[in-house]
């Protein structure tokens, strides 16, 4: 794809929340392309429980902003079928934790069709889904499951951490010819009822732009320790880096996409610092942090002095505040891990 340089965030005064930036990209693609439509529960009049479709109904009507029955197998599989016909549906799984009721459509149909058809059939759809905890919604509504989706081949996996990225990545996702899982963190959306931390609200240019998949963003340069992360934890890692400033010079990398994964940017940094801390809100075992450490070991073993990972321990996310706080990787956990590899 011919890549036009994206206009930088510095080109505008206007700031958006992540949800609005995401919606702006969807709106623009729907205006440009009749074949783009949105399906999900409560996406029409409600505008998405997490504001993922706020205002779209008014412009496009119920035919293109479709409320659907609580039948995730049916409508997500339906999106796969429409995509196989060449349309560009966006289907929303309200919480990623509900993947269990429709995983066959995702895993066996959406993800595998291109390969099983020897490349003769593609599935150009986007599966949007809300991820993450921090607000005591307990075991069935708080997961991120980044590793689960990234583990299964055939889907591209996108995790924006700022409004600027959310918009560019959504444009790229809709235009991509493959299935893209677009995982937005609830805490980052800028919802009036779930205040976001500093950081995700950024300047966002009005014109459409793409952010290419597989390009991590070095959020902060540093010489001593590399912290690699994504989603909400980009902001927590930046806060930790700030806290450590003067003591440890921390480089913070936002992966932005898990599939494809920008291994080179990670390795370049690790070659420089020799010390890697992988940070993730997903479960510790068999997940993103383990993968990052493995890639560092494979690609930069000689430069590697120390590694550490910060992730959710392998328990379902508990409800009560002290319990969720215990398992949620926090700023202090990152600070400690960075100190430990120093």
């Amino acid at each position: 794809m011919a890549q036009v340089e994206a206009p930088g965030p510095e080109t505008t005064d206007r700031e958006l929340t992540m949800s609005r930036a995401m919606v702006e990209a969807i709106r623009s693609e729907m205006e440009e392309n009749e074949e783009v439509f949105y399906m999900g529960e409560d996406v029409a009049d409600y505008g998405g429980i997490f504001d993922s479709t706020q205002g779209l109904l008014e412009e496009f009507g119920h035919d293109r902003v479709m409320d659907v029955p609580i039948s995730e197998t049916g409508f997500i599989g339906g999106a796969v079928g429409a995509a196989m016909q060449g349309m560009r549906p966006i289907a929303e799984l309200m919480f990623v934790d509900f993947f269990g009721v429709c995983m066959d459509q995702i895993y066996n149909n959406m993800a595998k069709t291109a390969y099983m058809s020897g490349g003769s059939v593609s599935v150009p759809m986007v599966l949007t889904t809300a991820v993450g905890g921090t607000y005591n919604d307990a075991a069935q509504h708080s997961g991120t499951l980044y590793g689960t989706f990234a583990h299964l081949p055939g889907m591209k996996v996108v995790v924006p951490s700022t409004a600027y990225d959310a918009k560019g990545l959504m444009h790229t996702a809709i235009r991509d010819d493959d299935p893209v899982v677009y995982m937005f963190h609830k805490r980052l959306m800028g919802l009036a009822w779930m205040p976001a931390p500093e950081g995700p609200k950024t300047p966002v240019p009005e014109e459409p732009y793409e952010i290419p998949f597989g390009e991590a963003d070095v959020k902060r340069e540093g010489e001593d320790v590399t912290v690699v992360t994504l989603g909400l934890h980009v902001h927590r890692a930046l806060e930790a880096a700030e806290e450590l400033a003067g003591e440890v010079d921390v480089e913070v990398i936002d992966l932005r996409t898990l599939v494809p994964l920008d291994t080179e940017t990670v390795l370049d940094s690790v070659r420089k610092t020799g010390r890697l801390v992988a940070v993730d809100e997903d479960y510790r075992s068999f997940g993103v942090t383990g993968e990052l450490l493995a890639r560092a070991a494979e690609g930069a073993l000689e430069d590697l002095e120390a590694v550490e990972r910060v992730a959710t321990p392998d328990v379902p996310i508990p409800y009560a505040r002290p319990l969720e706080e215990e398992v949620q990787p926090g700023v202090e956990d990152v600070v400690e891990a960075v100190r430990a590899v120093r």
């Binding site: 005064d13 206007r14 700031e15 929340t17 800028g190 009036a192 009822w193 609200k201």
Partner: peptide
């Protein structure tokens, strides 16, 4: 709930300036 412009920014008519929450309505 959130400002979309900083103090001193230049806006055009119709630009969204901020989101306010009154009771449960945004």
């Amino acid at each position: 709930a959130t400002w979309f412009v900083r103090d001193g920014a230049t806006v055009e008519e119709g630009d969204t300036l901020c989101e306010v929450q009154i009771e449960k309505v945004s």
